[in-house]
Design a protein around this nucleic acid. Structure first.
Length: 858
RNA sequence: GGGGGUGUGGCGGAAUUGGCAGACGCAGCGGACUUAAAAUCCGCCUCCGAAAGGAAUCAGGGUUCGAGUCCCUGCACCCCUACCA
C-alpha cells in the first residue's frame, strides 16, 4: 500500500482531468440539467478562506449532482472591471488590465489547485471586449425600451473614488468600497429605471421559496412599498398670510402620507432643506436669511452624522402658510432638516400628536400639539370622545401616541378608527379625492439605479453627445466602444481628457461630436454574466435564447450575504427586462440561493491583515493538500453559519483521510478472501461485526444522501466517519485471522470500500479518484460513477434497544425484535419496569416503536 | 425606531416530523506499542456525587404521557436597515 500523499496525487490528477476535459459539459446531453453557480470573484489577488468556502460548497454540490445523474453546468469567470485595478495601476504606474489579468491567472491557478470542477471553456472575463460588448448592447436595448434616463439630481459622490455611487452603494453615509464620507452633488447622470419594476421585484419574491427568508425580507425592505395618499395643500399668497382672507391662487404643495386619518392633527407643515424651488418660495416672506442659514447648515452636516440615528432636529419658520384641505386651517410652513428630499415629495404634513419626530420638533419650537387620535384608556378620552371641533389645542405629553385609536376633534370623521389602512384613513382619502385635493398613491423607497461612473476601468457607456442631435446612442454595428489602451492614469489622464477616445462623429448628422466618457457601474457586468455562461462564445448576441432557456434559471446559486441587496436585486431586474425583451422565458434568475457564512479565526474574529490573523489557503494546501482543506471547510459547520477556523481541527480531518485511506486498502486486501465461516466464538463476533458494517453501509448511504440533499455537509461527513469507524471495528477482528463466510466476506468488503470512496468523492475528489483507480483498480473516473444505492431494509437492525420511561424519566432499557408488535413491547416494558411501578397505579403506557415506551403511573 | 436571526459540554457542533440531549470531531486525561519520541491503536471525557442517585439545552411560566424543539413573558448577543412621514 502506498501512503496517502496529496502532494503527489493532486497535481497529477488535476493534469489528467484537464487533459481529458473531464468537466466539460455539453448543451445537448440527454440527462436532466442542473446549473450550479457560485458568484464570480473580483480578481483581487490571492484567494482567501471566503473563496475556499464559497467555491468548495459549489464544487461539492456540482460533483454530487453529476453522480446523481445530472448534466451539470458549473462555470467560472471574473468580475474584472472596477476601482482596485485602477488604483493599483496608478500606484504602480502601470495599466489596470495588467494587474487584473495577472490576478485572474493567480486565482485560476488556485482554483485548479483546489480541484474545482469548472468547465473552463466557458470562462467569462467581464473586462474582455467579447463580454463587455454585449453589456453595451443590452444598455442600448434598455434605452430603446425607455429604461435609460439621463437626469440632473443630487447624487452621492465619493471624493476618494472620485466618482458617483448608487444609493445601494452608500453604507451609513460612506462609500461601500473605501468608506470615505459621501458628499451630495448636483450632477447629470445616467440611470436605469429599476423603479419601473419595483412592484414586480417585490411581488416575485413570493416565487423564491428557495431563498433565505432574511434575504427576501431585506429586498422587500429596500424596495419599501408604502400605500398612502398624496394630499394637496394650497399655498397662501404672501399678502394674505396674516389675514384669514380666502386665498385665490392655485399654487399647491403636495405631500405623501400613509396617515391621512391624522390630517386634523396637522399643526404645521415641513419642507426639506433641499426642496426644489425653496428659495423662490420663501422670497419676500421676511425669513429669507434664517432659511438660507438653515439650508447651508444642513449641507454641511455630513452624511455620516445624518445616518447616526437620533440627531437633534433643526428647523426655521419660512414666513409662509398653507391651507389644510380637510378643515381650511392655515398652518405655518417650516424648513426642517429631518425631512428627506428624495422620498415622497420632499414636503411633509406634521402631526405632532401622532408622530414622534414631529412631536419632538413641536416641543423644541413651541408649536401646538392638538390631540386627534386617542386610545380608550387615555385620560383625555372621556372628555374628547365624540368631540368634533377642536377644544383642546395642545397637549402636554411625554411622547407622541403612535399606532391606532379613535379619532377625536376630527370633524365628521370623529369617532372613526384611526391608523394605517384604517376606516378613518379610507374615509378622509375618499373625501379628498372627490374634492380634488388628494389621491391614492403607492410610494416606493427604491430609487432609480445610478449607473454612470467617472472612472476609466469600466464598460464605456455607448452614447454620443452631438450639439445638433443631443444625446445619441452608438449604433449597434459600431459596438463595442473599446476602452483605449493607451492611457496614463498615473499622470491623471481620464477618459474625459483622452482626446482620441472622446472625439467622434455624430451617427445621426455626421457632424463632429463627443463620446460619452462615463463608464458603467461594475454591477451592470455582474447582472447578466450567468446568462453569458450558457453561450459564452457567441459573437452575434449576448447569448442564444434557446441555450439560456435550457440551462437557466440557475438551480443553485451560492455566494455571500453581503450581496443580499445590490447584486441580487440588480440581477433580478436584468432578468425581468430580458424576459420582456423576449430573450428569456422565466421571471427569476436564481431558483435556490445559499448564502454562506463568513470564515472567522478561532476566536470568532474577522480575519484581516491588520489583525494578523489571516489563515492562507495556499499555506494549508502546501501543508495538507486541497482535499483536507475542502473536507475541513465542510466539517466546520452548516454552510450558512459563521465558521471558526481551527488548525487543530484541520489536522483531525487530515488524520481521518489518512486513516480512511488505510481502511479502504485493508478492505480491498480482504475482498478476495472468501474463506469459509469458522464457527468459533470470536468468529461469531466477527460475523456480527460484518453484519453491523453492512447495516451501517446502508444506513450511512441513506443518511449521507439526505444530508447532501439538504446541504448538511458537516453531518454527512460525520456519518461517513461512523461508517469508517464500524469498518475499523470489523477489520480489527479480521486482523486476528477470524473468518467470515464467503457470501458476506469478499463482496461485502469490496462494496463497503467502493461505497466509502464514492461518498467522499464530491468532498475529497483527488483522494477518491486515486483510491478508485489504484486501490480499487478501475480505469474510469469515480466522478463519473452513479451515486451509491442503498436499501432501507438492509439498514434495519434485527433487534432494537428501547428506553423505558416512568413518567418521562428513563428507568430501564429493553431489547426487542425490530418488528415486535406494540402489545409485546408494552408487556416487555412493564415487566422490565416492575420494580419502579410496584405499589403504583399504571395509568397508561405509550409505545413509540423503535424509540421508547413511556409508562405513566400515579 | 423597524426587520431578520441566535442562545446546547472546555471548544466547533449534532438531535430532519415533539420521543433515550451531547452524534461526529477538537482539546484534555489514562493506557498499549517504543530504549525514547513522533505516528498509530485502545479507553475515559456535561455538571454535582465515593456510589446509589440527582441536576442540566439563557431565565421564568404554559401546553403535552413526553419539550432543546411548540406557545407566552423577560434577558443577552449577532446581522441588516433607518429621521421613509
Amino acid at each position: 500500500m502506498k501512503e496517502y500523499n496529496p502532494h503527489e496525487i493532486e497535481p497529477r490528477l488535476q493534469e489528467a482531468w484537464a487533459a481529458a476535459d473531464a468537466y466539460k459539459v455539453s448543451d445537448d446531453g440527454d440527462r436532466p440539467k442542473k446549473y450550479v453557480l457560485e458568484m464570480f470573484p473580483y480578481p483581487s489577488g490571492d484567494i482567501h478562506m471566503g473563496h475556499v468556502s464559497n467555491y468548495t460548497y459549489g464544487d461539492v454540490i456540482a460533483r454530487y449532482s453529476t453522480m446523481r445523474g445530472f448534466d451539470v453546468l458549473h462555470p467560472m469567470g471574473w468580475d474584472a472591471f472596477g476601482l482596485p485595478a485602477e488604483n493599483a495601476a496608478i500606484k504602480r504606474n502601470s495599466h489596470p488590465a495588467k494587474w487584473t489579468y495577472e490576478n485572474i491567472a493567480t486565482q485560476q491557478a488556485s482554483f485548479q489547485r483546489m480541484g474545482f470542477s469548472y468547465d473552463w471553456d466557458r470562462k467569462v472575463v467581464a473586462c474582455d471586449p467579447e463580454y463587455y460588448r454585449w453589456g453595451q448592447w443590452l444598455f442600448l436595448k434598455f434605452w430603446e425600451r425607455g429604461l435609460v434616463e439621463r437626469k440632473n439630481s443630487p447624487v452621492n459622490w465619493c471624493p476618494d473614488c472620485k466618482t458617483v455611487l448608487a444609493n445601494e452603494q452608500v453604507e451609513e453615509g460612506t462609500c461601500w468600497r473605501c468608506h470615505s464620507e459621501v458628499e451630495k452633488r448636483d450632477l447629470t447622470q445616467w440611470y436605469f429605471k429599476i423603479t419601473d419594476y419595483a412592484q414586480q421585484l417585490l411581488d416575485d419574491l413570493d416565487q423564491l421559496d428557495g431563498w433565505p427568508e432574511r434575504v427576501k425580507q431585506q429586498q422587500a425592505n429596500w424596495i419599501g412599498r408604502s400605500e398612502g395618499a398624496e394630499v394637496d395643500f394650497r399655498v397662501v399668497p404672501i399678502a394674505d398670510s396674516a389675514s384669514s382672507a380666502e386665498c385665490q391662487n392655485d399654487e399647491t404643495i403636495t405631500v405623501f402620507t400613509t396617515r391621512a386619518d391624522t390630517l386634523f392633527g396637522c399643526s404645521f407643515f415641513l419642507l426639506a432643506p433641499e426642496y426644489p424651488g425653496l428659495e423662490e418660495f420663501v422670497a419676500g416672506a421676511g425669513h429669507e436669511a434664517e432659511v438660507h442659514e438653515l439650508v447651508e447648515a444642513a449641507k454641511k452636516v455630513s452624511a455620516v452624522e445624518r445616518a447616526q440615528g437620533d440627531r437633534e432636529k433643526h428647523g426655521v419658520f419660512t414666513g409662509r402658510y398653507v391651507v389644510n384641505p380637510v378643515n381650511g386651517e392655515q398652518v405655518p410652513v417650516w424648513v426642517a432638516d429631518y425631512v428627506v428630499a428624495d422620498y415622497g415629495t420632499g414636503a411633509v404634513m406634521a402631526v405632532p400628536c401622532g408622530d414622534q419626530r414631529d412631536f419632538e420638533f413641536a416641543r423644541k419650537y413651541d408649536l401646538p400639539i392638538p390631540p386627534i387620535i386617542l386610545q380608550d384608556d387615555d385620560p383625555l378620552f372621556e372628555r374628547l370622545n365624540g368631540q368634533k371641533d377642536r377644544v383642546v389645542t395642545s397637549v402636554d405629553w411625554e411622547a407622541a401616541m403612535d399606532a391606532e385609536g379613535t379619532l377625536v376633534q376630527s370633524g365628521d370623521y370623529t369617532g372613526m378608527q384611526g391608523g394605517k389602512h384604517s376606516e378613518g384613513e379610507a374615509a378622509i382619502v375618499a373625501a379628498l379625492e372627490s374634492a380634488g385635493a388628494g389621491r391614492r398613491k403607492v410610494e416606493f423607497r427604491l430609487r432609480d439605479w445610478l449607473i454612470s461612473r467617472q472612472r476609466y476601468w469600466g464598460n464605456p457607456i455607448p452614447a454620443i453627445h452631438c450639439d445638433h442631435c443631443g444625446v445619441v446612442p452608438v449604433p449597434e454595428d459600431q459596438l463595442p466602444v473599446l476602452l483605449p489602451e493607451d492611457i496614463n492614469l498615473a499622470a491623471g489622464e481620464t477618459l474625459a481628457t483622452h482626446e482620441k477616445f472622446a472625439a467622434c462623429t455624430c451617427p445621426k448628422c455626421g457632424s463632429p461630436a463627443r463620446r460619452e466618457t462615463d463608464t458603467m457601474d461594475t454591477f451592470t457586468c455582474s447582472s447578466w454574466y450567468y446568462m453569458r455562461y450558457t453561450d459564452p462564445r457567441n459573437d452575434s448576441a449576448p447569448f442564444a435564447s434557446e441555450k439560456a432557456n435550457t440551462w437557466l434559471p440557475v438551480d443553485q446559486y451560492i455566494g455571500g450575504i453581503e450581496h443580499a441587496i445590490l447584486h441580487l436585486l440588480y440581477s433580478r431586474f436584468f432578468t425581468k427586462v430580458c424576459r420582456d425583451m423576449g430573450l428569456l422565458d422565466f421571471d427569476e434568475p436564481f431558483t435556490n440561493l445559499l448564502c454562506q457564512g463568513m470564515v472567522l479565526d478561532e476566536k470568532g474574529d474577522v480575519m484581516s491583515k491588520s489583525k494578523g490573523n489571516v489563515v492562507s489557503p495556499e499555506d494549508k494546501i502546501d501543508e495538507f493538500g486541497a482535499d483536507v482543506v475542502r473536507a475541513y471547510m465542510l466539517f466546520l459547520g452548516p454552510p450558512e453559519k459563521e465558521k471558526l477556523w481551527n488548525d487543530k481541527g484541520l489536522e483531525g480531518i487530515n488524520k481521518f483521510l489518512n486513516r480512511t485511506w488505510r481502511v479502504v486498502h485493508d478492505l480491498v486486501g480482504k475482498a478476495g478472501d472468501n474463506t469459509l465461516f469458522d464457527p468459533t466464538a470470536d468468529a461469531l463476533n466477527a460475523h456480527g461485526k460484518a453484519m453491523e458494517m453492512k447495516r451501517e453501509r446502508h444506513r450511512v448511504v441513506g443518511k449521507v444522501t439526505a444530508d447532501f440533499d439538504r446541504y448538511s455537509f458537516n453531518t454527512a461527513l460525520a456519518a461517513i466517519m461512523e461508517l469508517v469507524n464500524a469498518t475499523s471495528d470489523f477489520l480489527r477482528l479480521r486482523e486476528a485471522e477470524h473468518r467470515i463466510n464467503c457470501e458476506t466476506g469478499g463482496p461485502l468488503c469490496r462494496d463497503v470500500a467502493e461505497t466509502i470512496v464514492k461518498l467522499l468523492a464530491p468532498i475529497a475528489p483527488h483522494w477518491a479518484e486515486e483510491l478508485w483507480q489504484s486501490a480499487l483498480d478501475h480505469d474510469d473516473s469515480v466522478h463519473k460513477q452513479p451515486w451509491p444505492d442503498f436499501d432501507p431494509e438492509l439498514a434495519k437492525a434485527d433487534e432494537v434497544e428501547l428506553a423505558v420511561q416512568i413518567n418521562g424519566k428513563v428507568r430501564a432499557k429493553i431489547t426487542v425484535a425490530a418488528d415486535a408488535a406494540e402489545d409485546d413491547i408494552r408487556s416487555a416494558a412493564l415487566a422490565a419496569a416492575a420494580d419502579h411501578t410496584a405499589g403504583k397505579e399504571v395509568v397508561k403506557a405509550i409505545v413509540i416503536p423503535s424509540r421508547l415506551v413511556n409508562i405513566v403511573v400515579k
